[in-house]
């Protein structure tokens, strides 16, 4: 899925994602190396909630990552699951990429910093977005991928610049 309007909306393809639920502590520090602060992305780990992290890895490496986490956290209460296939990931790029998202999410994109992740909603569904050097990356549930792509391309229509 690709749409080129006043910003570019592109399906990012398969992204390996592991949801890790664990409480902060020494075991978690050891397992993750760097534990990101609230709503931050540190390395390949995103802070999702006080006891939830999302870890990005190459799609093929997910099983290995889960094994690694389970080993590192053996004995500590935790849950590591593959969520790669349950999500759709879109990249929104271009100088006015934030305008596309501003139409869909009740989020102040002028204050969203690079490396910060924001969970909210896009239109009528849950979505998370973060800002990186090259633009914005958004993910949502896979069942609504077509809907979210529809939202993004509607918002990015040429002539709809804010």
């Amino acid at each position: 899925m690709l749409f080129e309007g006043f910003a570019k909306v592109a399906d990012a393809g398969p992204v390996g994602m592991v949801t890790l639920r664990a409480k902060p502590g020494a075991a978690l520090d050891a397992a993750l190396g760097t534990v990101p602060g609230h709503r931050q992305i540190a390395g390949n780990v995103a802070w999702m909630s006080p006891d939830e992290y999302l870890i990005f890895v190459p799609y093929a490496d997910v099983a290995a990552k889960i094994t690694e986490l389970d080993t590192a956290l053996a004995g500590a209460h935790h849950l590591a699951v593959d969520v790669s296939d349950s999500r759709a990931v879109f990249d929104i790029t271009g100088p006015k990429a934030a305008d596309v998202l501003s139409k869909l999410m009740p989020v102040d994109f002028r204050t969203l910093r690079e490396g910060e992740i924001r969970r909210s909603r896009a239109g009528q569904v849950a979505a998370a977005v973060w800002r990186h050097e090259g633009g914005y990356r958004l993910f949502c549930f896979r069942s609504v991928a077509r809907y979210v792509f529809g939202l993004l391309s509607h918002s990015a229509q040429p002539g709809s610049e804010i």
Binding site: K103, L104, G123, Q124, V125, F141, R142, S143, V144, A145, R146, Y147, V148, G150, L151, H154, S155
Partner: peptide
Amino acid sequence: GEARDDIFQPLRRTP
């Protein structure tokens, strides 16, 4: 707003 036609509401689709 944008909520009409294909994106009137989020239809969930299976694989």
